[in-house]
């Protein structure tokens, strides 16, 4: 149980996907302007990460590895994720239209989101069991949500600030992201010592 907590907490805080692993920067910069969009996107990411892990982990362990097809990992995973996102969208549209209405627009964006492909590959690289992989995916998704929500708050402050002309737009956003990620550096070492 302790191991699950460690995996979860380190995925959320220490190895935060956006702020320390630099995965999923595009949505982090592009969709974080408003809080409700940031939350919608993040919830969709958590959802897809969990489903993608639940499907790709068994494929790698029971299909690719026994047949020594490990080198096909990249192609298979991206195809599975792309197909899965389409499938999820169709199912949501048919059976849970209210959820589709709030998440639907974000789903197609996630196909080419490196955070989702990243989490599925990292789960295999780290040698996690199925349960650990699922916990790691959930933690990574929650970490993404946390970063997005925090950053949308920071950005709403920037919108009203008077910044030098050259820094307007993206540059000042990146500088703000730098300071946000600085705050996450404070967590390093905390989790290991918590359970030592």
């Amino acid at each position: 149980m302790t191991k699950f907590i460690i995996i979860m907490l380190s995925a959320v805080f220490i190895n935060n996907y956006v702020l320390s692993r630099f995965l999923g920067i595009c949505p982090f910069l592009g969709v974080s302007k408003k809080l409700n969009q940031a939350v919608g996107m993040s919830v969709a990411v958590i959802f897809v990460m969990l489903i993608a892990t639940a499907v790709t982990w068994p494929i790698q362990i029971y299909l690719l590895d026994p047949n020594s097809l490990g080198y096909l990992q990249t192609i298979v995973f991206i195809l599975v994720i792309a197909a899965l996102v389409q499938l999820v969208e169709i199912i949501l549209k048919r059976y849970i239209p209210s959820l589709h209405k709030s998440l639907g627009v974000y789903l197609p964006l996630i196909t080419t989101n490196c955070a989702v492909l990243g989490v599925t590959i990292l789960n295999i690289d780290e040698g996690y069991t199925f349960a650990e992989a699922m916990v790691n995916s959930l933690g990574s998704g929650v970490g993404f949500l946390l970063a997005m929500v925090m950053f949308s708050g920071v950005r709403s402050k920037i919108e009203g600030a008077d910044v030098p002309k050259a820094f307007q737009g993206l540059p000042i956003t990146l500088v703000a992201a730098s300071i946000t990620s600085l705050s996450f550096l404070g967590f390093s070492g905390v989790i290991e010592n918590l359970f030592a």
Binding site: L19, S20, F22, L29, G30, P164, K165, A166, F167, Q168, G169, L170, P171, I172, T173, L174, V175, A177, S178, I179, S181, L182, F184, L185
Partner: peptide, 30 residues
């Protein structure tokens, strides 16, 4: 470390904006 990456990237883009006198700069993200 991670914060340095964001910081250097932000400053580099600002420098490019300055040199090109905002000709290339976009109001929004690219």
């Amino acid at each position: 470390m991670a914060p340095g990456g964001f910081l250097v990237f932000g400053i580099l883009i600002a420098v490019v904006n300055k040199i090109s006198h905002g000709k290339n700069s976009k109001k929004n993200f690219g």
